[in-house]
C-alpha cells in the first residue's frame, strides 16, 4: 500500500473509566486503551458496510484483518507509531470531506483511529484530530 493521507483521531476501548466504560474490546476482542493498537475501516465486509470510506472517494484502503500492522505518521511533526488492528473504524462516511490541518499541511477524511497510548506517542490527546499518512507497518 502506498502511503495513504487522511485524518487520524483516537478512541478508548477495553476496561475504562467514565463514558468510555461502555465501549468494549472492539471487533477483534483484544482492544485496550493502553496498547499500541488501531481501528481500521476495512477489516471485513460487515465493517466496510458501516464505515464506507468509498462514499468519500477514499481508495487504496485494503482489506486488513485483526493484528495487521500499520504505521501512522503525524504530518504536523513527523512522529510515527506502528500499531496493530484491534477494531473496526472510524466511521469515515460520517465525516466525508472533513479536513484537518496544521500550518499549511492538510489531509481529508478519517482513515484510522488510534488508542490513547498510540495517539499520545505522536500527538497530544487534546489535539483530537490531525493529518497523517498511513503505511504498512
Amino acid at each position: 500500500m502506498a502511503g495513504l493521507n487522511g485524518e487520524v483521531s483516537w478512541f478508548c476501548c477495553g476496561n475504562a473509566w467514565g463514558p468510555c466504560a461502555s465501549t468494549g474490546r472492539g471487533a477483534c476482542g483484544t482492544c485496550h486503551s493502553g496498547n499500541f493498537q488501531h481501528a481500521w475501516p476495512n477489516t471485513s465486509d460487515a465493517c466496510f458496510a458501516i464505515t464506507h470510506p468509498d462514499t468519500c472517494g477514499v481508495t487504496g484502503m485494503s482489506r486488513r484483518t485483526c493484528g495487521f500492522r500499520h504505521s501512522t505518521t503525524n504530518l504536523c511533526n513527523g512522529s510515527r507509531v506502528v500499531t496493530s488492528i484491534a477494531d473496526c473504524g472510524p466511521q469515515t462516511d460520517l465525516f466525508c470531506g472533513e479536513r484537518a490541518c496544521c500550518g499549511g499541511t492538510c489531509a481529508s477524511n478519517r482513515i484510522v483511529d488510534l488508542t490513547p497510548a498510540a495517539f499520545s506517542a505522536i500527538a497530544s490527546l487534546s489535539a483530537g484530530l490531525i493529518p497523517c499518512t498511513i503505511d504498512v507497518g
Binding site: 483484544t30 493502553g34 496498547n35 499500541f36 496493530s84 498510540a118 499520545s120 507497518g137
Partner: peptide
Amino acid sequence: EPGQPDPNFAE
C-alpha cells in the same frame, strides 16, 4: 511492539 501495552503510558 505493536499490539502490546506501552510501559511509558498509564490510564
